[in-house]
Design a binder for these strands. Sequence first.
DNA 1: TTTCACTTTAGAACAATTATAAACTAGTTT
DNA 2: AAACTAGTTTATAATTGTTCTAAAGTGAAA
Lengths: 135, 135
Amino acid sequence: MKKLDILKKLRSSGLRPTKQRVEIAKFLFERDKTFHFTIESLDKLLAKKTSSKFALATIYNTVHAFKEAGHLSEVEVRGNKSYFDTNVSNHHHFYDSETAELIDIDANDIVIQKIPKAPNGKKIKNVEVFINLKN
Amino acid sequence: MKKLDILKKLRSSGLRPTKQRVEIAKFLFERDKTFHFTIESLDKLLAKKTSSKFALATIYNTVHAFKEAGHLSEVEVRGNKSYFDTNVSNHHHFYDSETAELIDIDANDIVIQKIPKAPNGKKIKNVEVFINLKN
DNA sequence: TTTCACTTTAGAACAATTATAAACTAGTTT
DNA sequence: AAACTAGTTTATAATTGTTCTAAAGTGAAA
């Protein structure tokens, strides 16, 4: 993803392309593969890779803004920290609790044959499959 | 589940059956249906139902001890709080984010036809299906 | 270039959880 | 049954992840 696309992405989401947002967006979205992170890990990685230093609150603000805009998704992971994912399409995850690492599973690689219907007046919003790994 | 069984359950897990543990265990396990809770909700419910007042730390200690012993399971729910479940068999969940409520899905009510194999040297520990509900 | 709503920032505040250390107690030993 | 001891409970402090606040800064429109 090129810088121009990033500016477009931000503007089309109603997000003013500030220096911080552009740098964080470049870091997150200029990748071939899906990227999984927590705020803490992102903070550390940004501190290493970029010259500028962002306030922690800015990282929280930005990640939430990107999530609201649909550019990031949040993943269910047991524990206290929130995990985010640059893959916003419908998909699933392996989770390796040894390394606290998430691995994407393409939606097509899991086929569910039978599923219960939603309770009283509710609808199914989405189905997440979470596969815990062990050694 | 009778009181004697509860004493047995505790002792066989290497947990001394203290007054607090017995009361909390009775509250959690003397039920027909599965019970889902957070530490906060359990604390409130115990405060109402039982005459005695437990220290919050005791509730944390006890719930963790029961979880370690395999009498409770912890459920993946996005957000800051931990959810626990008295159903420790292999099963799945609906989650209603409107009410922050979990509903059990029997393992037999979900059939997965196709599943990817675990990555490099890892094995699958378990598969959790999480169905988010909307109105 | 001025203006102004939106952003960033440092630090305070908050919420969930874990750690601490003193008081207490179940169960064993005497 | 009294004493002992290791495990437990308790109130409180500490820690961790996250959100709030209010002052200073900045894109972009006029």
